[in-house]
Structures are given as C-alpha cells and as structure tokens.
C-alpha cells in the first residue's frame, strides 16, 4: 500500500471529523451544563390524576431518563396555587434509558378540591434527582397544569 495517498485521506478525514466535532462540542457541553442545572435531562409527565373518595389526589407520574447514567429520584415537592405544599421522599431508581412509573396520593385542601372540580389544577413541582456516579443532587422545576379526572 502506498503511504502518501493514505496520509492524504487521513488528512481529509481529520478536517471532516474536525468540522463535525466543532458542532458536537458546543452541543455536548451545553447539554451537560443544562442537564446538571435541571435534573439530568429527566422527562417528568403526569400521566393520570384522579380524586379519590378520601379527598386525596391520586397522581401517577412517569419519569424517563434519556441518558446512560443511572439516576435516583429522592424527593418530589408540590406547591399549589393556594400555597399548600406537599413533600414526598422516595428512593426510586431509574435505569439507563429507562422509564419509571410513580404513584402517590396528595391530601387536598378545600380550595384545591374546588379547583379540581373544574378539571384542571395548576401546580409547581420540584423533583430532586440524585446521581450516584457524580455524588450530586440536581433539581428539576416544572410549572404546569394537570388534568384531573373526576
């Protein structure tokens, strides 16, 4: 095999890979910083919210992990519009590229119950994520409205 054409090809491949990496590097670095800032990229979705007979709101959440790093959900906090707070500590592990379903009941005040009768409940939620491979905690803030089934 001739060495010179091989060297030329390696050189052109270097330029090509360099251009690709010039796009990938800022993307990766920004994603890393954004993930560290807000819950390591977890995607939290309230799949179902229903008022139980004992005036509790039964919430089912699905949390998915986009990366190949194992994560642990250690705490979920809800703050509702009337100022009531709900905290739940847990230890739910989410596998690499996995999705976990979490269900729990939130005790409701009269104000909140009145609001749920309209079928929607605005909330603000903080999810605490522990990253065992970094020994770090990250927090995800979500403001949204959940649809409540009667």
């Amino acid at each position: 095999m001739k060495v010179r054409p091989m060297k030329e090809w390696i050189f052109y491949a270097f330029i090509l890979v360099g251009i690709i990496c010039a796009i990938l590097l800022p993307m990766t670095a920004l994603t890393y910083i954004e993930y560290a800032e807000s819950g390591y990229g977890i995607d939290v979705e309230i799949s179902e919210a229903k008022v139980a007979p004992d005036n509790e709101l039964d919430v089912m959440m699905s949390i998915s992990n986009p990366g190949k790093l194992e994560l642990e959900i250690t705490r979920i906090e809800f703050v509702f519009e009337d100022g009531t707070e709900f905290k739940k500590t847990m230890g739910v592990e989410i596998d690499r590229k996995g999705t976990e379903e979490i269900g729990f009941g939130i005790p409701m005040t009269a104000d909140n119950l009145a609001q749920t009768s309209q079928g929607e409940l605005p909330y603000s939620m903080i999810v605490e994520v522990y990253i065992p491979h970094r020994d770090a905690y990250s927090y995800l803030n979500v403001d949204g409205t959940m649809e409540v089934l009667p």
């Binding site: 270097f14 890979v17 360099g18 990496c21 010039a22 990938l24 590097l25 990766t28 670095a29 994603t31 890393y32 993930y35 390591y40 990229g41 986009p66 990366g67 190949k68 790093l69 690499r96 990253i131 491979h133």
Partner: peptide
C-alpha cells in the same frame, strides 16, 4: 476540538449521544 469532544462524549454518560 476533536480530542476534547471525544473525551467528553466518552466520559459523560448522561448525554443521549
């Protein structure tokens, strides 16, 4: 740029790619 990208991508398991 290339070497840093490779090291970042190898070490950061949380990135989807």
């Amino acid at each position: 740029i290339i070497v840093t990208t490779i090291y970042l991508l190898y070490n950061l398991a949380e990135i989807p790619w």
